[in-house]
Amino acid sequence: MRVISRRKAIAFFITLSSCVMAAAITLNISWVVLNWRRLGLLILGIIFFGIVIAGLVLNTIFLVREIRRNEQQDSFLHAVTHELKTPITSIRLYLQTLQSRQVDEAQRHEFYRVMLSDSDRLLNTVEHVLHAAQLRHSSNKLEDVVDMERLVRECLEEARNHHHLSTESLRLLVAASEGDAKVTGNKEELRSAITNVLENAIKYSGEKVDIQVELSSGDNVSVRVRDRGIGIPRADLKQVFKRFYRVSDREVARVKGSGLGLFIVRSIAKKYGGNAFAESEGPGRGATITIQLPRAV
């Protein structure tokens, strides 16, 4: 409801500004018509009206931008509150349970496992938030020529270990290519981009993980990660890279996330002159996320 009323407010103020601008322009024209014989007044009038109109335009732009920023901040708070508070609530619940009740050995180990996974989730959110904040101020991190094939292999190995996956369910395909798949960039940032895409693919795959990663290099080096998970609706293919954007779908709501992962991925790709995009044949039919980076010569 609040979003709708805010939309209305934006619409109202934009209409108001356009009306005032139209009025100013009309006055300006009338001034020109009325005073076209007197050169001095004419020029003076045009300058003053010009200032007024420019001021109005700037003001409107500023207003709209501020409202947008405010909206973003709201959805950020909403997402982050949930993503931070839920694991904390869970960890506290289990700690208080252990503190106040008799818990048998097996049960206790299960509780430890749950708490560890919740603290992982917490750490993940915190890292995402910090990372996204860092990306805004482009820091001068060490840039290097990175062998993408090796890096992708490392990331895959790590993901397999972390999620206990077999080589078949998360496999790598290296396309034959002229030259090495090398790019210029910070190795850790590139790693984080690849890992984010992999984590997403695993997260949205559900029970049966079947992910294929393709590495190919021509003018660009591209890493394509294809999953057979819940997919992305056509209308959301571009949106998913926006900060804090999450597809509003029941299946998606079951999977937890801060809405920052793909934003980070694309920011990193763009930082090194590349890009990232998503393809999907629709909900339920899997998605392919591609990271494209210029090949280092």
Partner: peptide
């Protein structure tokens, strides 16, 4: 509760 961990933790406590 859609958060599985929370739901299971609550269930354990209520049963206790």
């Amino acid at each position: 509760e859609d958060e599985e961990h929370l739901a299971l933790g609550l269930k354990f406590n209520l049963e206790a």
